[in-house]
């Protein structure tokens, strides 16, 4: 079996299984703890608060937006960019179509794909250099933060390196990094891509019940 077949075949299947099962296990583990009882009479709906909390925090607040502008732009650029690359890059759609889903959808044209990559890379680099150049960030960051950023960066970079599609080995390296990323994901802070809705939602519930979602 060639290297490429390994990392796109059995190893990918294994990594994807770890990703799905691990992430589910962790999400269920968090939810299973259960919310503490709130004995005060509710002023408004907690469920609506869950949704409000989730929506509210997509938008920066005016008074703070200016101070955190670099972070907001970098963050949105990176996350939206990566989302577009993963789900609307033609290679990714083909891969998902052939390996997993069995259907496909329209892809970004090449120029848009490259432009999106540039935005996503810029965002990720901005977020990480901010992490290393600020005392607050240095204090609260741990190994996981750096490993997560770098693994994601390397996955993206190796993907970019393989763009000519002339060498199986480059595609193989990209896929190997994807596999490692998938396996690392559920055990790390990368999980924030799923846990964010629990966190926003539950604080929304608490405050929603009191009648004011923050």
């Amino acid at each position: 079996m060639s290297f490429l077949n390994l990392v796109e075949g059995p190893l990918f299947t294994f990594a994807a299984a770890v990703f799905v099962l691990g992430a589910l296990w962790r999400l269920i583990g968090i939810i299973r703890i259960g919310r503490a009882k709130d004995i005060s009479p509710p002023k408004a709906s907690a469920a609506a608060g869950f949704i409000k909390g989730n929506l509210r925090h997509f938008f920066p607040r005016g008074i703070f937006a200016k101070r955190t502008m670099v972070h907001i732009i970098g963050g949105y650029g990176f996350h939206l960019g990566l989302f577009m690359l993963v789900f609307f890059g033609v290679y990714h759609i083909d891969f998902l179509n052939e390996r997993i889903l069995g259907f496909s959808w329209p892809a970004l044209p090449r120029w848009a794909f490259l432009l999106t990559s540039a935005v996503a890379f810029s965002g990720l680099i901005t977020l990480w250099v901010r992490r290393i150049s600020d005392p607050v960030m240095q204090l609260i960051s741990d190994k996981d933060d750096h490993i997560g950023s770098w693994l994601t960066f390397l996955v993206m970079l190796s993907g970019c390196f393989a763009l000519e599609q002339a060498h199986d080995s480059l595609r193989g390296v990209h896929m190997l990094l994807v596999d490692i990323w998938l396996i690392y994901f559920p055990f790390s802070r990368l999980m924030h891509s799923f846990t964010f809705f629990l966190s926003r939602g539950q604080s929304g519930m608490t405050y929603g019940r009191k009648g004011k979602v923050r």
């Binding site: 962790r26 968090i30 703890i33 259960g34 919310r35 503490a36 955190t68 960030m137 629990l198």
Partner: peptide, 23 residues
């Protein structure tokens, strides 16, 4: 004991972005 699923989800979701410091 105090860490119910709400607090747990806070600890699970924090991305160490440091924006809270700015507030």
């Amino acid at each position: 004991e105090q860490t119910d699923s709400e607090v747990a989800s806070f600890f699970e979701a924090c991305v160490h972005c440091g924006m809270c410091a700015e507030a």
